[in-house]
């Protein structure tokens, strides 16, 4: 694929340039590509293709033969209300995560923007959750948010009255709580990208705005936020599409409960696979794959267009 990066050879190119071109080709013989390609085929293409194929079979733990059944799995899935309601939950979750993660990340980046020693330390500290195990994060938060957990104890001490809010027990609000946990875990990454974005803004532009008498908020609104557009595109797209594939944090905190209100599609897939209905689970993950792909294009196109306005 690297060959596509080379400029097309033109007839009117001077001879030297053509020679240089050939030399650069010899610098990058095609077999350089093979190790990477092999990895890609084994660990990326293969599972993806399996995913496509098995979705059209009746593979299960109940029998040894695997037969093709056409679109049977998909028809049944569409008839079953669980798929659509889980897709809805997944979408809501992904949007919430995208919003919170960007709010937290941008806030942190703005607060920790200046290169002081404390700020450097704080940036590293806020990045720690990113490299933590998601399951560990989930279990820790589950303990904190229990009715008799740390948070309620803290609130009890603070307010003087008995507080026993079941943070993970509301069929309406728990999805927001879990999305905040997800956003908390990944906000360090968004922070880093926003920080990089802020660094690329030309000092002179800010200075010019200051000379024009603009205050902090005015500069942020009119100059820095628009110039952060590429960082917003990346952060929003990765947070949204990444959390569509969310599983571990939700599994550790609520396992899809209460009342199925946080049952992401991946949790449903996990449950179905575990029950031995391998083909149905594969069909569901194919549906998820298609939904993520369908969602990715308009979102990224919209965000890119937003950048072009600059």
């Amino acid at each position: 694929m690297t060959t596509t990066l080379l400029p097309a050879r033109r007839k009117d190119q001077p001879r030297d340039a053509r020679l240089a071109d050939r030399r650069s080709r010899q610098d990058h013989p095609s077999w350089f590509l093979w190790p990477a390609l092999a990895m890609l085929v084994i660990f990326f293409f293969t599972p993806t293709i399996y995913n496509f194929v098995y979705a059209f079979t009746d593979w299960s733990s109940f029998k040894s033969e695997i037969g093709f059944v056409g679109f049977d799995n998909f028809v049944k899935l569409l008839q079953n209300g669980s798929l659509l309601s889980d897709l809805r939950v997944t979408l809501i979750y992904a949007i919430l995560v995208a919003i919170f993660q960007n709010l937290f990340g941008l806030g942190l980046a703005l607060v920790l923007e200046r290169d002081t020693r404390i700020n450097r330390f704080a940036r590293a500290a806020f990045f720690v959750p990113v490299i933590m195990s998601a399951l560990a994060v989930g279990y820790v938060f589950q303990a904190i948010l229990k009715p008799d957990g740390v948070l309620n104890n803290f609130l009890t001490t603070l307010t003087g009255g008995e507080v026993s809010i079941p943070w993970l027990g509301s069929t309406t609000w728990t999805i927001v709580v879990v999305a905040i946990i997800h956003a908390w875990k990944w906000m360090g990454l968004s922070m880093l990208i926003y920080l990089a974005g802020l660094k690329t803004i030309n000092e002179e532009v800010i200075e010019a705005a200051q000379l024009d008498g603009a205050g902090y908020w005015r500069i942020f609104k009119a100059v820095r936020w628009p110039l952060l557009a590429p960082a917003v595109t990346f952060n929003f797209a990765t947070a949204l599409l990444g959390s569509m594939n969310g599983f571990d944090i939700v599994q550790a905190t609520t396992a899809g409960g209460p009342g199925g209100s946080t049952e992401l599609l991946n949790i449903f897939i996990f449950r179905t696979f575990g029950q031995g209905l391998f083909a149905q689970a594969t069909a569901m993950s194919l549906v998820l794959f298609l939904v993520v792909a369908l969602l990715a294009f308009p979102v990224i196109i919209y965000l890119r267009r937003r950048e072009r306005v600059l």
Partner: peptide
């Protein structure tokens, strides 16, 4: 070709 080989191999339990 690799993908085909994989699919062909993959269709047995």
């Amino acid at each position: 070709a690799a993908a085909f080989a994989v699919v062909a191999a993959g269709c047995s339990d």
